[in-house]
Design a protein around this nucleic acid. Structure first.
Lengths: 101, 101
DNA sequence: TCACCACATTGAAAAATGTCTATATATTTA
DNA sequence: TAAATATATAGACATTTTTCAATGTGGTGA
């Protein structure tokens, strides 16, 4: 763990978009192919492809190619990493007082 | 819990920016006033003020006014909410096969 | 009251992101 | 091989976000 601030921000950027949240929620019910996702979310095919790239790059989602189809699913490992990252980030290490002002 | 996709995305938007990640990391060592944060991060004062607003709006950070100073700290409750949100979002409900293609 | 200080707000410019259309690539099937 | 299908990529455009300079607000102390 202990990613750079840039990498950390990148991880959470995957979760910054309303449509990507919808996609993840759909994937909670198991693996889905791109065409099915496209049916359920109102964006064009290239836009969906872009979102799937962002999600896969973040590690939260994994893609599996089967012939001409792409099947996507939530990565348990990616989800675990994200949770650990958020947990570490928001952990208060020392409850010291503000010695500044 | 069970926020809308829009609200969920908004929560994670607070974590999307490299400088805001740095700010949270600084706050891990305890409450800090705005002027101290400003010393440590290379942005102008209005930009810092903007980031603090985003962080406070998300609930992850709380501000406490004391005279003319603002003291910021990580909200344990906000952090808990964010963790629960991410945990629920990435939980795989059913491991069904893709019945699509 | 007046000057000063810490912080917030406003408005504008620059950068990043989401979206589309058009096109390319890869795989299957006739 | 050629057509059809699923997905990816490229390029353009609009929106959103980050940032700054300028200014406003509210508290402090001379």
């Amino acid at each position: 763990m202990e990613l750079s601030e840039k990498k950390t921000a990148e991880m959470f950027k995957a979760l910054c978009d309303e449509n990507r949240i919808k996609i993840i929620k759909l994937l909670q019910n198991g693996e889905k192919c791109a065409c099915r996702l496209n049916e359920e979310i109102d964006v064009t095919q290239p836009t969906m492809s872009h979102h799937m790239k962002v999600l896969c790059d973040s590690g939260l989602v994994v893609g599996r190619k089967e012939g001409k189809w792409m099947h996507y699913s939530i990565s348990r490992e990616g989800a675990k990493t994200a949770l650990e990252l958020l947990s570490e980030l928001t952990k208060v290490k020392i409850d010291s007082n503000d010695s500044c002002c």
